[in-house]
Amino acid sequence: MDNLDQLEQQSVYIFREAFRHFERLCMLWSIGKDSTVLLWLARKAFFGHVPFPLVHIDTSYKLPEMITYRDKLALEYKLTMIVGQNADAIKAGRTFPATQHLPDGHPDKVSRLECCGLLKKDALANTLNGVWPRQKLNLKTGRYELDPDRAPYHGVIVGARADEEGSRSKERYFSPRDKNSAWDIGEQPPEFWNQFKTDFAPGTHVRIHPLLDWTELHIWEYIKRENIPTVSLYYDQGSGTRYRSLGCGPCQAPIQSQAKNVDQIIDELKSGKLKNIAERSGRLQDGKHGLEELRREGYM
């Protein structure tokens, strides 16, 4: 059993514990490499099936390839695909891209971080608790329809990894969130061996992290080993750049890299060329404490 096997086996165990204990369980799918590995692991855990819905928060600023890839995979794997959105903020233009032209200090100006708060954090919290409408993919027509199910989710599987950035390294496999989706880092329950926090008070929910012990290199090695389809944005298409982490178009900068396939990405990660650059450095919204605070308030 090698290291990847061990990581895989632990993730599968966590998936099955989550499925057992949370009747209202869903999995967040950001379409990036981590959540795609997560999806694959779910199929490993459930012998080819994905017995819970996937939730995607659509900021409307995702790169179009991501959305195409999302729906293609959902139809192919027959996934229950739920999409949530902060439609009001988008319609009212209360976003960073829509107010980018305004001078700093203008009352209507929305900073990058505030934009994340509105389009991701708020949309996520309100989609999970069912306060805002959810759209569900009709696998027959390939179109999204209003989901009549508005019940809150109590278990939310998330693809966070401990090595990504400081605050994520503080997570547990099963990490409780209070009524306001907030994360009380100081008061987390203990996690003995493989006994997780699976009892929860009404109104609260639990975030589940099957990928906590994985690193970026593990993710790519696993993608290679299992031959998992990934979106083309991760690879250099001839411009000498590629995305290392996927977010919204306006806040996302590609990195200088000529890695054209999975092997080359693995080589690049191993060679140490990227070793000294934080993975999310292309994400322009990650300020000093900003992300940490957003996470505590419920951002994934």
Binding site: D163, G166, S167, S169, K170, L212, E292
Partner: peptide, 27 residues
């Protein structure tokens, strides 16, 4: 890495980090 930790001046939680030697990776 955490602000409240710095405020209190103590390490609060089990921070998982990675370091490497020639032999292996340590979490």
């Amino acid at each position: 890495a955490l602000s409240d930790e710095q405020d209190q001046g103590i390490t609060i939680d089990t921070a998982r980090s990675f370091f490497k030697t020639a032999k292996r990776d340590y979490i």
